[in-house]
Amino acid sequence: MTGIVKWFNADKGFGFITPDDGSKDVFVHFSAIQNDGYKSLDEGQKVSFTIESGAKGPAAGNVTSL
């Protein structure tokens, strides 16, 4: 699925993605970002991701920028 990064705190390594389908915002951890180098996201960035079952509920996985 796709969405827009609502916010991401690079110091803490997590944030939230707002899915394009209008569903509830999804937690994203830096370890789910699939790019080389520094793993961070920018507010407003368009991303593709999967929904994984995290310890505290749904979380984004396999996050790639579009």
Rank of each mutant, 00 (worst) to 15 (best):
F30W: 15
Q34H: 10
P58W: 09
F16V: 06
S65R: 14
G3D: 00
F49R: 00
F30Y: 14
F49V: 01
K24N: 12
L66K: 07
M1G: 07
S65A: 13
F14A: 02
S23C: 08
V5I: 08
D21R: 05
I4P: 01
F8K: 01
S65T: 15
P58L: 13
E43P: 15
V28N: 00
I33W: 06
N35G: 15
N62R: 10
Q45A: 11
I4T: 14
E43W: 14
D25Q: 07
G22P: 03
K46C: 14
D36A: 13
P19T: 05
N35S: 14
V5E: 00
S65D: 10
F49N: 00
A32T: 07
F27P: 03
M1K: 11
N62M: 12
K6Q: 04
D36C: 15
K12I: 09
F8D: 00
A59C: 15
S53G: 11
K12P: 02
I51Q: 05
E52S: 11
G3S: 00
D11A: 15
T18F: 06
F30I: 09
V47C: 04
T50K: 07
N62A: 09
P19V: 05
D21K: 06
T64D: 05
G44A: 05
S23W: 05
V28Y: 04
K6H: 09
L41F: 05
K39L: 08
S23A: 08
L41G: 01
G57Q: 06
G37D: 09
Q45K: 05
I33H: 03
D42T: 15
G37Y: 10
G15L: 02
I51K: 08
Q45M: 13
E52K: 11
S48N: 09
S53E: 13
K46F: 10
F49D: 00
F16T: 03
V63R: 01
Q34F: 09
Q45L: 07
V28S: 01
D36T: 13
F16E: 03
I4A: 06
G3Y: 01
G3I: 01
G3T: 00
S40F: 13
S48V: 11
S31I: 05
A55S: 12
F30P: 02
E52I: 14
T64G: 05
F14C: 05
G54S: 14
N62V: 08
Y38F: 14
G54W: 11
S31L: 09
T2W: 06
D11T: 15
D20A: 08
T64S: 11
S48R: 13
F14Q: 03
I4G: 03
F49Q: 00
P19S: 04
W7L: 03
D20H: 08
K46M: 10
T18W: 07
V5Q: 00
L66Q: 08
F49S: 00
S53W: 15
N35F: 13
